[in-house]
């Protein structure tokens, strides 16, 4: 555990808490892509199946459970409790265009052709693109609430910090995982446009609004 990894995990945790609180406090999931949230639930489920097969640390176990519970809790709030507020007209990204290539890629490029390993690889590939329905929704409506922007910023920052973690681990521990690194770069790059808007607009107190 190094500082980049810890800050990355905390940023990730902050993102899921912001999202849950936003939905809970406003009693609304307006502006949130249910499709991205379904993909994230699939990501955590596929990756954290190792909860039952390998123990790493209390920290890892607790965080995994928190991410799983928060993710399914978000789905519950969006698709059951506050279903009426779900903006499905703007949430139209075809997720099969993300899921199927990730399945194929996971079957072709993995560290080991075993069920758990392929699921882990699939989750890494899928996580890298899971935010696209959300970004698509923001671009379609042309704006995002500030709280949604904070969520996206924290979520994007998390994998960016993991990149520094991997650079650190490469030098300090001789440890690297090319699948995670390349997917992590893709994931972080997808947020760049958003980061720019966040820094130039939201941090100056303005609403995130895309140029017409």
């Amino acid at each position: 555990m190094n500082i980049f990894r810890l800050l990355g995990d905390l940023s990730h945790l902050l993102a899921v808490i912001i999202l849950l609180l936003k939905i809970w406090k406003t009693r609304s999931c307006a502006g949130i892509s249910g499709r991205s949230q379904i993909l994230f639930a699939a990501v955590y489920t596929a990756r954290y199946l190792d909860l039952v097969t390998s123990y790493i640390s209390a920290y890892n176990t607790v965080m995994k459970i928190v991410f799983l519970v928060a993710s399914y809790g978000t789905l519950y709030l969006m698709f059951l409790k506050f279903k009426a507020t779900y903006d499905h007209n703007h949430d139209t990204f075809r997720i099969e265009f993300l899921v199927l290539p990730c399945v194929i890629l996971a079957l072709l490029i993995n560290h080991d052709f075993s069920a758990l390993e392929i699921l882990w690889t699939f989750s890494i590939y899928l996580e890298s693109v899971a935010i696209l329905p959300q970004l698509f929704m923001v671009s379609k409506t042309g704006e995002a609430e500030s709280i949604t922007s904070h969520y996206l910023f924290a979520l994007g920052t998390y994998r960016g910090l993991y990149l520094f973690n991997w650079i650190y681990r490469y030098y300090a521990e001789d440890h690297y995982d090319l699948i995670a690194i390349i997917a992590g770069i893709v994931q972080t790059v997808l947020y760049c446009d958003f980061f720019y808007l966040y820094i130039t607009k939201v941090l100056k107190g303005k609403k995130l609004q895309l140029p017409a």
């Binding site: 990894r5 990730h12 890892n60 965080m63 080991d112 390993e117 993991y162 521990e173």
Partner: peptide
């Protein structure tokens, strides 16, 4: 090099 199948990150 550590085993790739040992995933210790989140």
């Amino acid at each position: 090099l550590q085993s790739f199948t040992h995933h210790d990150e989140l």
